[in-house]
Design a binder for these strands. Sequence first.
DNA 1: GCCGCCGATGTGAGCGCTAACAATGTGACC
DNA 2: GGTCACATTGTTAGCGCTCACATCGGCGGC
Lengths: 333, 333
Amino acid sequence: MRGPAMTDVARLAGVSHQTVSRVLNGHPNVREQTRLRVQAAITELGYRPNRAARALVTGRSQVIGVVAQNTTLYGPASLLAALEQTAAEEGFAVTVGSVRDLDRVSISAAVERHLAHRVAGIVVIAPVESAGEALEHLPKDVPLVTVDGDPRRPVPLVTVDQEAGAREATRHLLEAGHRTVWHVSGPADWFDSAGRIEGWREALRAAGAEVPPLVPGDWSAASGYRCGQMLARMPEVTAIFTANDHLALGVLRALHEYGRRVPDEISVVGFDDVPEAAYFIPPLTTVRPDFAAVAQASLDLLLAQIESGAVGELRQTVAPTLISRQSVAAPPR
Amino acid sequence: MRGPAMTDVARLAGVSHQTVSRVLNGHPNVREQTRLRVQAAITELGYRPNRAARALVTGRSQVIGVVAQNTTLYGPASLLAALEQTAAEEGFAVTVGSVRDLDRVSISAAVERHLAHRVAGIVVIAPVESAGEALEHLPKDVPLVTVDGDPRRPVPLVTVDQEAGAREATRHLLEAGHRTVWHVSGPADWFDSAGRIEGWREALRAAGAEVPPLVPGDWSAASGYRCGQMLARMPEVTAIFTANDHLALGVLRALHEYGRRVPDEISVVGFDDVPEAAYFIPPLTTVRPDFAAVAQASLDLLLAQIESGAVGELRQTVAPTLISRQSVAAPPR
DNA sequence: GCCGCCGATGTGAGCGCTAACAATGTGACC
DNA sequence: GGTCACATTGTTAGCGCTCACATCGGCGGC
């Protein structure tokens, strides 16, 4: 019924189970000949080590738990995929604990579930305000890394440099000749939003440009469309920076419906570089975050904690890149 | 260092560890008073059962392994999220084993990794030809469900009814008055593509319409754009059904660049109903698969196998829904 | 030639839990 | 009051592995 265990392999190879364990774990002091014999036995029996048993005795499984809210959005989905990829390369599996709301109770529950499985470490994708508090009330002894979390919390944090990206987007528009840049933002409680708003403001201020009122959206194309309908009717608007590409899509459609041509009359820049952004009408200039780099940095931080046992308190930011396409031009004169 | 174990709880509650186990597993024959005492002890110590130990003795962990290729695409990402959600409701965690290619070696390796963790069951999202073979060479004794897999393989399978969706899309265009419908397909080796092509052909044949040559794409907006450039120059083309929404986006952009107006001159229907499809120019009529239903059906099938121990051989299809928006109109006369 | 050392292997214990069975206690019933 | 059934609890073994330590040769040094 059950598959073969270590002792079965040992018996077949004519060694003790401990030697099998040594071979499996790459322990140095094993004679080459013995190693081969053991490996042959493993293959012959189709033996597969039982990770649960190992986790039981070592107290850690080779699994990393990820807590995330909405893994359908492009950003989180990409991040999760990158995380999984990177973890696999380091020999770790990933379990996802998605959560309906990012409040204290939900996050704690998700973390508890991971802890019950004795995960080696936890990555929390916690881009909203409400998550912050929860993170401070977590057990201190488990390796933890936050992604896109609250920069003010004393927790290891890896994040895309939202402000730099937003600054670059805004500056790009200013350099094209626009007097100022309007911003359609993400939801108010997301740190991503806050950082992008901040970067946008900074760039405007640094250029001595007027700071127009913020136009608040919620990441969705639907809200971008609504904001766009408003902006389309304002003749003074010549440049719009949206907090993500889907907002930009909605804005583009609204502008199109109002007959405002992009980029001739109005320039638009997005954020995320979703794969289809190059096929918007017109192709969207946008800011591309490096999810692979974020995943790598997160895992490095986590593995460092796992190995040292110490709880680090580092933060790393990953700079995004401006991808220039056809949705930006000089303002009409 | 290590957290409290069952014996610690038992000692504090003044019972044996076995009684604690009974309380934890909801065993009936425990006196109410004892149960309360145990629960109090659990809370006081912050005890958290060790799933690894349980998995060791029962031979199964309460974890479901998912094998998937590209969890960044909208479809797989949605499916994964739905699967995770549904599993959580049933008390299962989900670990992802993503895989670079869906060939036999990669799939076997991913399955092996899951098996090493003694997962209770495995869901393989295997929408391409190359995956099929691998699935037959898997260990027979592990509960397994395929999603979007090969309909001809003798493996439990849950899938979106691609043909029905494609038929409906095509019929919708024919009913709008078009003489025939062109199809921009997905990659040749995907079952999703094959099913949608088949449904499209069927609907045309059923209506006695001419079947135009297939225009092959690869899911991406980029390839949709290329196909669109071709179709835009063919005056006889008045209706296009694309195998997904991103292809449609590319097609729309190409048509736009060639000055072909949608839907006045050409109608377009997509597949997937990505959240932003309603904000394409014009809003896209498309076919919405019910990922939640697919996830639910997959899990039901899997849990049935887990509980019965028998390997079922069922298949279930989930019907998608046509979402009508503004990209379809009567052909020009 | 004896000692000590080191590389290679084996032995035993125990991680935290569940399953099977044993051992109580409790009440119903004759 | 004795017996039986049943509810409740305890005892023991062992899942498959790693860790700490014991053992056993062989080899160099004096």
